[in-house]
Simulated assay, not measured.
Amino acid sequence: MTAYDERASLGGPPARAEPRVGEEPSSRGDLTATAERVHRSVEGVIEGKPEIVRLALTVLLAEGHLLIEDVPGVGKTMLAKALARSIDCSVRRIQFTPDLLPSDITGVSIFDQQQRDFEFKPGAIFSQIVIGDEINRASPKTQSALLESMEERQVTMDGQTYELPSPFMVVATQNPVEMEGTYPLPEAQRDRFMARVSIGYPSPAAELRMLDVHGGASPLDDLQPVAHAHEILKLIEAVRTVHVAETVRRYTVDLVAATRSHPELRLGASPRATLHLLRAAKASAALLGREYALPDDVQSLAAPVLAHRLLPTAQAQLNRRTAEQIVREIVQRVPVPDPSAPAWRMPGQQPPCLRGL
């Protein structure tokens, strides 16, 4: 059965979910069907935001972590829950509060009087999908408890290293820092999120559909898993096989390097951002049915992958310039690789990509 525990408890690690959605995908058609099922399941909950759902799925298949930032009430936690419940895997939710301790997340060693030894009690991070609700309401010390887990997919406690399950993804929500009672995420923490997304308000038509469909009950009540964890691992393996030509890799490096020398930025994107942008571009290409990445994939993901890592200068802030605006200008300014360059696709390569999502 699906292990869905919304409490940040200190119990043992959740049991691995038993397959019940379908057999392990082995063909290209199976991979396509799995990705489409997850996409439709989440989109059925988040009305009128298909591009947001696609980005969340892209981050999942690129083995990244997603930060959802927006004002209260627009569906941040709903998106995180919908993505988690659409996959039959272990899920934990952590409600970040000012009194939350790092040990509530990573775990704690407790002395067992019968065994006369310390026993490690895993925290809520020991799950395949971790929902961090309102992450910036906890202190920076508690937020930093996620650093090792998000980057190395492991937890070190009392000199012992514990591996986290796979796939592993952190989906965190936060309110803008202007909201009362919030702490800004440290730069090292923000850099570990592959992408940041803002849901925004729905259109009047989408909001009307929301009232018609979800007015009586929560859309999460009837949401059932449509894919198993091992199917997601197969999708991730397919994304890894997507080919990236040398010209596209160089273009990715040029985009990120431009943020480090921009006069309106006092902190540019890190080399980790370059890796995240390339991996996200490969996932995007696969979801669009291609076995190779294009500069278009890099361009479309530049803002959500890079903007949250950048720090505008004081003068740029006075001019009401945002990091997203600066990234879009960089995308317009950096030369795009020549289409007449060597073919994007590797000769003879036919990886099991996803088609038509």
Rank of each mutant, 00 (worst) to 15 (best):
T2D: 13
A3I: 03
D5G: 01
R7S: 14
S9R: 13
G11V: 03
G11R: 13
E23V: 13
R28D: 10
D30T: 06
A35G: 12
A35Q: 10
E43L: 15
I46A: 11
E47T: 15
P50S: 11
E51W: 11
I52W: 03
V59W: 04
V71M: 11
R85M: 14
I87Y: 01
C89N: 04
R92D: 02
F96H: 08
D104M: 11
G107R: 04
G107P: 03
D112M: 12
Q113E: 15
Q114R: 15
F118H: 14
E119H: 15
G123K: 03
I125T: 03
S127K: 03
I129Y: 04
I135D: 02
R137M: 08
A138N: 08
A145C: 08
L147W: 05
E152F: 01
Q154K: 12
V155S: 00
T173R: 02
Q174P: 01
P176L: 06
V177N: 09
E178N: 01
M179A: 12
M179R: 10
E180T: 05
T182F: 04
Y183E: 02
F193L: 02
V197F: 01
V197A: 09
H214E: 03
G215A: 07
G215S: 05
G216C: 05
S218R: 12
H228P: 00
E231A: 13
V242P: 05
A245Y: 12
V248R: 09
S261D: 08
E264P: 00
R266C: 05
R266G: 01
G268V: 03
S270Y: 06
P271I: 09
P271A: 10
A273T: 13
A273L: 09
R279W: 02
A280N: 04
L287R: 08
Y292G: 05
D296L: 11
S300H: 14
L301H: 10
A303E: 14
V305L: 09
A314H: 13
N319M: 15
V327S: 04
R328I: 01
R333N: 12
P337S: 05
A341I: 04
P342C: 01
M346T: 07
G356N: 14
